[in-house]
Computed example of a mutant assay.
Amino acid sequence: MRRPEDRPAALANRRGDAGAEGQDLPEDGGSEESHGLEDEVDASTPESRRLHALLIEFSRYRSLKNPLAGICEDLQLTPTQMHALSWLGNDGPVQVGVLAQRVGITRKTITGVVDRLESMGLVERTRDVEDRRAVVVRLTQPGSNVFARIDRGLDASLRRVLDLMGPEDRDAVFGILERMLARLTAEAEAADDDSQAG
């Protein structure tokens, strides 16, 4: 179970924290109310953000589609399209091959997914600055707006899960997930070291 080699820096203030530039993303048709998220815009907590960050890290090892399934129908996107938008929103522009790896599908299949998202105006293709042969996919402004809705919906779900736990249980869950992630990371690094030595 190998972790992708690239480790993009965390995107600062992507939820529109206070003082961030561009924190109020314009809607791309329809209101927050139509998606049932009108009360979720600024309601994330340090603990929900911490849990979200851990789940993002775990999803690098195994596809994490289920938490987004409820939003797919509302936004008329397939789970695979939703997954691709989520990775682009979390990691920023990536090469098509890296996006295929993140989503857990073949390069041939990701091409069709990107084609459809591009026709919907949610992503755009550009050439990689460092390798002109490589194609990079990035969110457009409407795509960023959709990602913001996905992100708020997932955060709301995580807060509902956290509300079922007391403080000690939350600390225990965070500790378990962090220790598991440290072990997965150590195993992936050891596997990389072995492959480079061989």
Results as ranks from 00 to 15, higher is better:
P8A: 06
L54W: 10
E124G: 06
F147C: 03
R183I: 13
L181S: 06
S34W: 03
R170T: 04
E189P: 00
V136F: 02
V173C: 02
R159K: 08
G104C: 02
R49E: 13
I56S: 06
D24C: 05
R102L: 07
N90I: 04
G166L: 08
G19C: 07
G166R: 10
E130Y: 09
R133E: 12
D6S: 07
W87A: 09
T106Q: 11
V146A: 02
T140H: 05
A134N: 03
R159S: 05
I176S: 10
S48V: 01
M180A: 07
L117V: 01
Q95W: 04
G104K: 01
L85S: 06
L99C: 03
A10Q: 11
R132N: 01
Q95V: 12
D194P: 00
I71D: 07
R3S: 11
A84E: 00
T111P: 01
R3N: 12
G29L: 01
S44H: 09
E168A: 12
R160V: 15
D163H: 15
G19V: 09
D194Q: 08
A172S: 12
R116S: 14
T106L: 05
E189T: 04
V114Y: 03
Q76M: 07
I71L: 14
V113W: 03
N13K: 15
P93R: 04
S144D: 15
E32N: 12
D169Q: 12
R15I: 01
P46E: 05
L37H: 00
S86V: 05
R149I: 00
I56G: 05
W87N: 05
W87P: 01
G89Y: 08
H35S: 09
A191D: 15
D169A: 12
D151K: 01
M82C: 13
P67L: 11
E189C: 00
G19L: 09
E57Q: 15
M1G: 12
G92V: 06
R49W: 09
S63L: 04
I176A: 11
L68V: 08
H52I: 07
R125Y: 06
L164N: 15
F58S: 09
G70S: 12
Q196L: 12
R159M: 11
R149G: 00
M1I: 08
E187Q: 14
L55Y: 09
R159D: 10
T185R: 10
E130G: 08
D163T: 13
A53W: 10
E27P: 03
A197T: 06
R179D: 15
S34D: 11
D163A: 15
M82D: 00
A182Y: 08
T106I: 04
D24N: 08
D39P: 03
L77Y: 08
Q141A: 15
Q81T: 01
S195K: 13
L99S: 02
T109Q: 15
N66P: 02
A10T: 10
R116H: 14
Q23L: 15
A69N: 04
D194I: 05
R152H: 03
R179N: 15
E187H: 13
D74N: 10
L37R: 00
T45G: 12
A20P: 14
R116T: 13
A182Q: 14
S59D: 14
R15D: 07
S44T: 09
Q81N: 01
L154W: 13
A9T: 10
G153P: 02
A197L: 11
L37W: 00
L184G: 02
G89R: 06
L64S: 07
S44P: 02
D155P: 00
R159L: 03
E118A: 11
R132Y: 04
